[in-house]
Structure formats: C-alpha cells, structure tokens
Design a protein around this nucleic acid. Structure first.
Ligand SMILES: [Mn+2]
Ligand SMILES: [Mn+2]
Ligand SMILES: [Mn+2]
Ligand SMILES: [Mn+2]
Lengths: 222, 222
DNA sequence: GATTTAATTTAGCCATGGCTAAAATAATGT
DNA sequence: ACATTATTTTAGCCATGGCTAAATTAAATC
C-alpha cells in the first residue's frame, strides 16, 4: 500500500516544508528537483498522494501534508536517522557514507528492527548529523540553529548540526576538524562573499568557504 | 538492472537446484510455487532471465543457472545469511524472526555493509540455521547432513542445520530444546510414520513428529 | 495408440512509477 | 493591458512484475 516511492516523496515534502525558510511554498518543481525526477512525474505522484489524503494539493500553488502524510514522513525520517546513527556508532561508518545507505534501508526494516537499534543506541534523540530524531509517536523537536555563515565575528559557538546532502562536503569538514561539538569562532569575514577565517577548537585557524559555512549550524557558546 | 525480483528468483532457483534431491528438475511450477506467484508469472520471469543469460531454459523441461546467474544467487544468499546471523548475534533476534527480515534487507544493503557485518561477526562460515555462507568470491561448501527423520535408533547425533522455512516450527524446536549443537538420539520410531521418541541433551526425552524431524539435519556423533 | 489429465506457455489485462512533448495556466515585464 | 516567459498539467508512451483465462504441449492412463 505505502510504497518506497511514496515514503520518499512524503519525506522529501516534509523536509521541504520545514527545512527551508518559513512561508516558502512546496511546489511541484521543487519536489521534482529534490527527488531527481521530471516535473510531470512529480505531478503524477502528487495527484496520487492527494487522492490518498496524504497531502492537500492546490493546483499551481503547492502541497501541504495532512496528518496522515506527516505521520508516514516522520516514521520514515525516524527510520532514516536511527539507521544512520546505528551505522556510525555500531558499525563504524564514516558520516559521509551513512545517508546513502540509510536511504535504502529506511524502507526495508521492520518495526522490530527499529525498536532493537533504538534500544542498542540507548534511545537517542539526536542523529549522526545533529538532526532531531522523531519519536515513535511522531513527535519531533524543532531545533533551528543559526548557520555558521551568519555568525558574528568574535562570537564563540559550538557545531550542533550539519547538512548531510553532500558527502564530499562532509568529508571536507572532517578533514578540517569540524564535527558535532567542535568549538568554533569566526575571526574575520572576507568581503564580497569571501571565505571566513575560522578558529577551530582553540588550537588552529583555517579559512572556510561560505558555502561550507552555510551548511553548518551552530549553538552560541557562553 | 538486477532488480529485487530477479535476485529473489535466482536465489530460489539456486536453492531448488541444490537443496532438493539430485536430478530433480527445476520446473516452472516448482519455481512459481516457491515464489508464491502464478505459473504464468514465473514463465514471464524465466523468459526474461534466459534473455539475460542468467539461466538456460529448456521449454517444458526446466531451468539451470548459468555462471552469471549462480554468481548473483550466491551473492544474494551470502547477504541473506550474513544478515540473519547479524540480527541474531548482534541484535538478539530469536531465530524464527530473522529470515523474514533478511528477505527484505538482502536487497537493500551495500557491499560496504556486507563487509562490515562480516567483519563484526568474525568472518563466519556457517549461518544462524546452520547453512554454509558463500564467500565473497562465490564459493560455497556443500554440507549435506542426513535428516533426523532418517537417523537410525540408538545412533547419537548432533543438530547441525535446521530448515528456516517455517517460523512456527523454529519456535517449537526452541521450546523443545532443539538448537544447533544439541545432542540427540532416536530411541524409538513409532510405526505408520508415527513420531519418534527422542533423547535430547542427555537429560530429557520427548516425542517428536516426523515432519519436524524431517526439517532437522544432524551430524553423526562418535 | 488414443484419450484424458497435468503442466506450460501465450494472450491480454492491470498497477506502479518513470519519461518526453505538447497544452494550459500563472507570473512577469513593458 | 498585453505579450513573453516560466511553471504546471495533460496526453501518451515505456518497463517492470504481477494477474486470469485460454491455448498448447507433454505425460499418464486405459
Ligand atoms: Mn540523512
Ligand atoms: Mn529512501
Ligand atoms: Mn533464511
Ligand atoms: Mn528477498
């Protein structure tokens, strides 16, 4: 009934509704783009999901998940994030490889499997890239941290979340010593969208491009 | 290219070629039956697999895997058995629940995942139900143990493999204290395909139906 | 050897989830 | 206000992997 494709669409739509800036419409083309399919394919699936009452579609305007749709999205996201954390912690995967593996496994595991890895991990609430893990009941914390690229110079901060979209970028962060919990401070911002001079962990200082800083989210440190 | 359905068919055909008595033909209806699909559906897939040179089909006679087909079958079986063992050993699954979970996961894991659980398990060669685990190169030991139902009375033996086809039967075996490594001896065989009186582990004696005994494979003990 | 039965294949259908090309609609610029 | 552009939808196609019903072929029985 609920196929892998449906789960992936609902997950993507949920993340588009919440991840982005508020009040941005989740349109056919945005969904198609994120899913890596043609716009017509997205239209088809949106129509089908609307018929299943998993979302509401206002033609030419965009979509919004219903309670039922959000439930499935959050369940899929929970699977994804628990699996990612399990791969990292129990099997020693590097953090740039877990997303791709979890994208397939999230559809294949049972509730039993979910419960067992949840227990093995000690009922975690934060995933391997710092995202909140939805509960089994479908609740999710909304942590929204400022981006490192928006941080004021001289303000110490701690890395709390990173985007997992680009594995190469994750590998680069690793190489720079940027992980969850790492203490950072912007020393200087180069003009014309230039790189920022970043103090990392009190011992080194490196230049970091804005695009990378845009994908790192921080907590202001005292 | 190689879909989940193809992997499942090839796996099933491999097991039919080897599991059963030698010289039994692997026919359309046998495949359809094991796969739980209509005979016409099996015909379709067989035709397709023959075009892909994964098997040879003699119309109305049956099929035989090619080298390429056997390779994929063994890779799928390797995934299945490593996953089963991992579920049992690392996540504490009971042995009656691992087959169903592995039947889905076997198609979703990467080579990386395979290698990591292989390592975590200490490069095992025998699966959770006693089956040999094919190597990454596609070699497999052919262990064929006699069935407990064929064992002579008075001959002590050790359980080495069980069929994993029926979860309920596995639960029943567990309840009876019948596991891999358990020492058993047939004391008496009731006539007319009746139950056998079985000594289990030197401390108890129970009546065991022939169907269950048929699904237990043993090694003769000294 | 002819006939009945069983197995297999063919024909034609369906659902899913992709695609491209064309048409319709909304948004934008002059 | 109207023309241009961008987005969205529709129409029609394809591959995959199911299904049932009918036709064909092989096997078994008389
Ligand atoms: Mn992820
Ligand atoms: Mn996915
Ligand atoms: Mn199994
Ligand atoms: Mn399977």
């Amino acid at each position: 009934m609920i196929s892998q494709a449906i789960e992936d669409y609902l997950k993507t739509i949920y993340k588009l509704q919440h991840g982005g800036t508020e009040n941005e419409r989740v349109t056919t083309s945005v969904i198609a783009d994120r899913m890596g399919v043609a716009a017509a394919s997205a239209t088809n699936m949106i129509k089908k999901l609307a018929e299943m009452h998993l979302l509401v579609h206002t033609p030419y305007q965009g979509v919004g998940l219903t309670g039922a749709g959000r439930k499935i999205a959050l369940e899929t996201i929970r699977h994804h994030r628990l699996i990612e954390l399990y791969l990292a912690q129990a099997l020693g995967y590097p953090w740039d490889q877990i997303d791709a593996e979890a994208d397939r496994l999230e559809h294949a595991i049972s509730e039993e499997f979910e419960d067992r890895i949840d227990k093995a991990l000690g009922y975690p609430t934060i995933g391997a890239h710092g995202e909140p893990i939805p509960t089994k009941q479908g609740k999710i914390e909304d942590l929204d941290y400022p981006r490192l690229s928006d941080l004021e110079t001289g303000q110490p901060a701690i890395i709390r979340r990173v985007s997992d979209r680009n594995p190469e970028m994750l590998r680069y962060m690793d190489q720079m010593g940027l992980q969850l919990g790492t203490r950072v401070e912007v020393r200087e911002k180069a003009p014309f969208s230039g790189p920022l001079q970043l103090k990392i962990d009190a011992d080194k200082e490196e230049a970091l491009g804005l695009e990378v800083a845009y994908n790192i989210f921080v907590d202001l440190a005292p």
